[in-house]
């Protein structure tokens, strides 16, 4: 299950703070939409909702930063970047390995006599 591609709809059932928490847990770039409509793409590596003025910290897509953006200046966060954790489970590796073994054995069997 990945949030890749998700554009949250903030409203009665989903708060901005919840979306920020999900963005903080997300292992990929996101696009932060500011209150003025401008956007910044990057990796949200920190958030502090207990600070006197809650904020997120982000390295942009070029690696510049860290930049600090107050919650009050954020309208939404879109999960636009590739989820780097998706498909990298151990199970996926075992399945890949098994597949390779079978393919190798099949090649061996059908090889030159």
């Amino acid at each position: 299950m990945t949030l890749q591609g998700w554009v949250p709809e903030i409203g009665e059932f989903l708060t901005l703070a919840e979306v920020i928490d999900l963005a903080f847990d997300y292992r990929g770039n996101t696009t932060v939409v500011r209150a003025d409509g401008t956007e910044i793409e990057g990796y949200v590596f920190n958030r502090d909702r207990e600070a006197p003025e809650p904020f997120i910290q982000i390295f942009d897509a070029a690696g510049n930063g860290p930049m600090r953006i107050p919650y009050s200046e954020i309208r939404n966060i879109k999960f636009t970047g590739r989820d780097m954790a998706a498909g990298n489970s151990w199970q996926a590796w075992l399945e890949r390995r098994e597949r390779e073994k079978v393919e190798k054995a099949a090649r061996h069997e059908t090889g030159p006599a």
Binding site: N29, F45, F59, A61, A62, G63, R82, W90, W93
Partner: peptide, 18 residues
């Protein structure tokens, strides 16, 4: 390496380059 159990390397490219 990209060990399946590793939670340290799952970052976008610009972070891994730093």
């Amino acid at each position: 390496l990209t060990c399946a159990g590793c939670g340290k390397i799952q970052y976008p490219a610009q972070i891994l380059k730093k």
